[in-house]
Design a protein around this nucleic acid. Sequence first.
DNA 1: TATTGTTATACTCTATAACTATA
DNA 2: TATAGTTATAGAGTATAACAATA
Lengths: 143, 143
Amino acid sequence: MSETHEDTNLAAALVGLSHHVLHLFADAGRAHDLTQQQAELVCAVIVRGRVGMSELGRALHMEKSALSNLVDRAEKRDLVTRTRDPHDRRATWVELTPEGARLAEATHDDVTARIKGLVEGLSGQDRAHLTGVLTQLRDAAQG
Amino acid sequence: MSETHEDTNLAAALVGLSHHVLHLFADAGRAHDLTQQQAELVCAVIVRGRVGMSELGRALHMEKSALSNLVDRAEKRDLVTRTRDPHDRRATWVELTPEGARLAEATHDDVTARIKGLVEGLSGQDRAHLTGVLTQLRDAAQG
DNA sequence: TATTGTTATACTCTATAACTATA
DNA sequence: TATAGTTATAGAGTATAACAATA
């Protein structure tokens, strides 16, 4: 197999797997009456503790206006709260409510468990290697 | 690092990377005035040649009604056509129009190129290993 | 009866651009 | 001037359920 052809296979496998992984948020969220985007939002907040709108936009790859709307709806559903940063009054911090934290934890655990189930067919060596490579790729992508 | 902790890292890296990969469709599509979902649709069709609604729904992880709406809009924009299967008149085949095929090829090439750019920092050995593992995971996920 | 797909309804999500407030 | 975020508008995407047609 040529290198180019193999890269094409790599790309196809990565795209198919990415679809599957993000769909896990839809599945896990549905169990708690959260949309996929709401599930991604609360999981992104819980792993960061407290997070600004800009960082959240980068993490979720959303325009600031789309994120503002998403946070609006999440706030109405008592999942998150907004607070102003007193040191830079332009900035907003997003935090989970107790209810949001409860759903976020359940959803995050569910997604993580599903991913663990997905990779359990791999050898420990393959998993360790995969973790290193994926981390490197993700950091390169976000860098 | 414990195995459990390492699996958590694996899950986090996979989620972050999946976000990035699917966002490539949004970027690549925008260059041709396609939404992310339209870009995913025409790319899914071009790699399959001609495809039924059910298979498309599985590939894109969409409910049949959502897919029906997406294909409606794509048909209005002259990206795809629907034809009835004469052997099973319940079934519908989706094909690309010449215009749809042109945009699909450009978008697919663009996404593939971006993914190749992403993995070019890896050694040939790491890439080959990654291709094997990702293919295995994708097939397990879709199986 | 089961399957394939569409339609109806009511939301949620998103992009673009114009806007406010703060730095 | 630049940055952080919101609002307005209009359209795209989605889930649920009810529906029609075919197998």
